[in-house]
């Protein structure tokens, strides 16, 4: 590329980045402003103050919400990774009749919009007495066709000879799964885990349906609650809440962007 082209590309990149990132920066800036400034519609705070954050933690049990979200996301991540890898292992390494049909059924579940099943699911969870519990928030999501698909792609790249060498040595399937397949696929497992954590952390509709108790409410619902309570008056506090919600996932994304991109593309395309 010539100098001119380079400069032009950089200019485009900078403009695009500024626009794309603006809402996030904006939220950060507002969260450090005092109430009056927000209402004047300022962009840059005259003085950076943490008052909104203190306020946010005092007005709503934000810490509890964050903790709940952390637990729920972690459990979902764990469940999805374990269930998906077990299923993917069977689909790759254990030959049995009807395996392909079963795999097709697994994949076709990706086409069922979860929202089309939410009413009976709500009834089921209610019947099981799982409303307002971590169980109700997490267990329905443990099975994951996309994760199974992604890991199946990964497991297929493991040389068949490793499995055969284990068979000759007399290693059981489960031991092969645990001490060869899982460690060898660490990268993919971490990628999938990140993806699961992100999606779980950002879940909105289901937690809205099955929690009405502050003790288990997740931070997304807490945010909605803040927003509808504080709406007209204290935007700074709400934005402080927003920042607290997005900080963990943004950090996770910044650290793992490259890996996530590679992992997801691999799953999506082959």
């Amino acid at each position: 590329m010539s100098w001119g082209q380079k400069l032009f590309t950089y200019a485009l990149l900078l403009i695009a980045a500024a626009i794309m990132f603006f809402p996030i920066i904006y939220a950060f800036l507002i969260s450090f402003m005092q109430g009056g400034e927000v209402l004047q519609g300022n962009l840059w705070p005259e003085e950076f103050t943490l008052a909104n954050y203190i306020n946010a933690f005092e007005k709503v049990p934000l810490l509890t919400y964050l903790f709940n979200s952390l637990i729920v996301s972690f459990l979902i991540m764990l469940g999805q990774v374990i269930f998906s890898s077990l299923a993917a292992f069977a689909f790759v390494f254990i030959p049995f009749k009807g395996r392909n049909v079963l795999f097709f059924i697994f994949i076709s579940t990706m086409m069922i919009p979860w929202e089309a099943t939410m009413v009976p699911n709500f009834q089921t969870v209610q019947m099981l007495g799982w409303l307002n519990s971590y169980t109700g928030l997490t267990v329905p999501f443990f099975a994951m066709a996309f994760g199974t698909f992604l890991l199946r792609q990964q497991f297929k790249t493991i040389p068949k000879e490793l499995y055969e060498a284990s068979q000759v040595a007399g290693i059981s399937n489960f031991r092969f799964f645990r001490s060869v397949v899982m460690p060898v696929s660490k990268t993919s497992l971490v990628t999938l885990g990140m993806y699961c954590f992100l999606t779980a952390w950002n879940m909105y509709l289901w937690p809205l349906l099955v929690t009405n108790d502050e003790q288990v409410r997740t931070v997304q619902i807490g945010l909605k609650q803040m927003q509808s309570q504080e709406i007209s008056t204290e935007w700074g506090v709400v934005m402080a809440g927003v920042v607290m919600v997005i900080l963990p996932t943004l950090l996770l994304l910044f650290l793992g962007q490259k890996r996530l991109q590679e992992g997801l593309t691999k799953g999506a395309l082959k």
Binding site: M20, A27, N202, I221, M239
Partner: peptide
């Protein structure tokens, strides 16, 4: 690349709240 993919880390709730404020007719 990180900036452009950043909204993947943004929850729908948080993003909506930010946009709600950006769309606020007065401020």
């Amino acid at each position: 690349r990180t900036i452009f993919s950043s909204t993947m880390g943004m929850s729908v709730a948080a993003s909506s709240v930010i946009w709600m404020f950006m769309y606020n007719p007065a401020i």
